[in-house]
Design a protein around this nucleic acid. Structure first.
Length: 549
RNA sequence: GGCGGUGUAGCUCAGUCGGUUAGAGCGGCGGCUUCAUAAGCCGUAGGUCGGCGGUUCGAGUCCGCCCACCGCUACCA
């Protein structure tokens, strides 16, 4: 049965470049999307920039230009950076679009109409110099508990205390350095407790969330009355003005997830596709891929919005952990806060795709990029095992072709074909680490076979030409089978393997089930270079010296 | 503090429904090979499965308590 699948990624915030942390998610998603396409399903992937909020407004102001100019520049950079890693979207949009505004307004109307909106005053710190209300993170001051200086307005990094920004001693605005004052303004709230019964059911529904996320929601947010969600900000704010409340704007997180819909909408406009078939169709599976930091937006607020708007709910929300580098938080001073573009200047993006995919699972745990292991793993697994299979046999078939009938290989190819469903199940569950482990096992078996048959020895014996051809035909078929299984992770390697063996068309999962025969073998070219540790060092050095934003 | 998660070999991690002697890759050590991008193959060493207690014929696995680490705790996004 062909499934119809709509996939989204968390929308990168416009105020920064794509870094390796973003790429954990985009690679995980892209692997899943490519896998589903290989299986013959109808898949569309959408992403875009998250654009609204105070941060964008302030930065544009500082740079003396309109926010729209900043948005345009960053959108292009984000697209370039993701494309460099072979991450493909059907449409990469922006939350600052007419379609997004239209869709947000519709959802707002639904929330209002259903009586889920309340209004009340909020007192907040206000920066008199820039004229903006300050979110917790835009206030700095001295911790009221331990007196550590230069702490954010919500919590102290030194002693871990949590407090309200007005409790800070010596508070200053992080935007201007001015001393903030308290001001009161009306805000609109979504009364989330209205959705309790629905959320208790939906979040615990089998298959919608990973168990640890479902447990966490039940033990935290859902263990007490849900607080009202503050969804408006008084002017000035870069965002959409609330239609029935002039001078008030939608909080960025109200319109951000709607960006998934508007990105689809814009794609439909361009291609003539039917929007309702993708977003208002219970048959269409919607899959969100996000980081654990924004899990509650996607598992509480967003489903409540969709439910109110009468939309189908996500089939699954896939939550992943963060990336650490060499066991620590990414750090600009240590050169481990690496931008995608910095990495790609020195190293092949495919190395990173494989390394991340080999470590990703369906769990929410953080994954570590250990740079020594990165070098060793890519060289050992991809160059030493997989590519080596072709490298050590293809040239023996120069100007020749694969055998007319697939030779007896002791059941190796068949065993590889039999593993297809287990590997597919791992990809389906986002457990690409498991998929990679199984495939590397196949590569080990294949190398053992070549070792045992020793075609390099056979070819020195007169009259053994056909035997050499048979052994190499087996090795190249196993290579093709393996690269087919790895194609979601390493599409260019798959392409190279198909070019070597003259296979036409896009990658197909079932290509791993049937051996190739009687095909000419193209001259072998190296399909992948070894990782040079000096290049890894160069990435770290470049990251340490560059002003990463 | 509360909540969620994690803890298995030097490193990164598998370990299904509780079931023989706990596995893999990398790294180490010894050997073979020299077709292949210093790639490959064989062998070998290395573990009180965080600790204590319990259930059970049997616990890495289930239960309780404790310890350590990570994360989250709603108006940064």
């Amino acid at each position: 049965m062909t499934r119809q699948i709509l996939v989204t990624n968390a929308l990168p915030y416009v105020n920064g470049d794509i870094h390796l942390g973003h790429l954990v998610e985009h690679v995980q998603t892209d692997v899943w999307v490519r896998f589903q396409r290989m299986r013959g399903h109808e898949v569309r992937a959408f992403c875009g920039d998250d654009t609204h909020g105070t941060a964008t407004m302030i930065r544009a102001r500082q740079e003396g230009r309109e926010p729209e100019a900043l948005l345009e520049e960053m959108n292009e950079r984000h697209r370039e950076d993701l494309a460099a890693f072979d991450v493909i979207y059907d449409h990469y949009g922006s939350t600052h679009s007419p379609s997004n505004q239209k869709l947000v307004n519709e959802i707002w109307e639904a929330l209002r109409g259903a009586g889920h909106v309340a209004e009340r005053d909020v007192t907040q710190l206000f920066d008199p110099e820039t004229g903006v209300f300050l979110a917790d993170r835009f206030v700095k001051g001295t911790c009221p508990r331990c007196s550590a200086e230069d702490q954010y307005g919500d919590s102290c990094e030194s002693c871990g205390a949590a407090y309200r920004p007005e409790e800070l001693s010596n508070p200053v605005s992080a935007l201007s350095g001015a001393v903030p004052e308290l001001r009161t303004a009306p805000h609109f709230f979504v009364t989330l407790e209205d959705f309790r019964a629905f959320l208790e059911e939906w979040t615990q529904r089998e298959g919608v969330l990973q168990p640890e996320i479902a447990n966490w929601l039940m033990g935290s947010f859902l263990s007490e009355p849900l607080r009202d969600w503050d969804v408006s900000r008084p002017a000035p704010y870069f965002g959409f003005e609330i239609p029935d409340a002039p001078g008030h704007f939608f909080y960025v997180w109200l319109d951000a997830p709607v960006g998934y819909m508007s990105s689809t909408w814009d794609w439909c406009e361009q291609t003539g596709e039917d929007f309702d078939r993708w977003w208002r169709n219970p048959e269409c599976e919607i899959h969100h891929f996000i980081g654990k930091d924004i899990a509650y937006f996607h598992t509480l607020f967003w489903p409540a919005m969709l439910k109110t708007a009468g939309q189908p709910l996500p089939r699954r929300v896939h939550v992943h952990g963060f990336l650490t580098v060499n066991g620590e938080k990414m750090s600009k001073s240590k050169g481990t806060f690496v931008l995608g573009r910095t990495y790609a200047e020195h190293l092949s993006p495919h190395y990173l795709r494989y390394y991340l995919a080999s470590k990703l699972s369906d769990r929410v745990t953080d994954i570590d990029l250990n740079l020594e292991e990165f070098t060793a793993k890519v060289n050992a697994d991809l160059v030493g095992k997989v590519v080596n299979l072709a490298s050590r046999t293809a040239r023996f078939l120069k100007n020749d072709s694969l055998t007319e009938v697939y030779p007896d290989d002791g059941g190796l190819f068949e065993a590889g074909a039999a593993a297809a469903e287990e590997i597919a199940a791992a990809y389906e569950a986002c457990d690409s680490g498991r998929a990679c482990r199984i495939v590397m096992g196949l590569a080990d078996r294949a190398n053992e076979y070549v070792e045992a048959k020793a075609p390099w020895a056979l070819r020195k014996q007169p009259g053994k030409e056909e035997e050499v051809r048979a052994v190499c035909s087996v090795a190249l078929n196993l290579f093709h089978q393996i690269t087919t299984y790895l194609d979601p992770v390493l599409p260019r390697l798959g392409e190279g393997a198909r070019a070597l063996l003259g296979v036409e068309g896009p990658p197909r999962w079932d290509a791993a089930a049937v051996p190739l025969t009687a095909r000419p073998v193209a001259p072998f070219r190296h399909l992948m270079q070894r990782v040079d540790p000096e290049r890894v060092e160069a990435v770290v050095a470049a990251s340490a010296s560059s002003e990463a934003s």
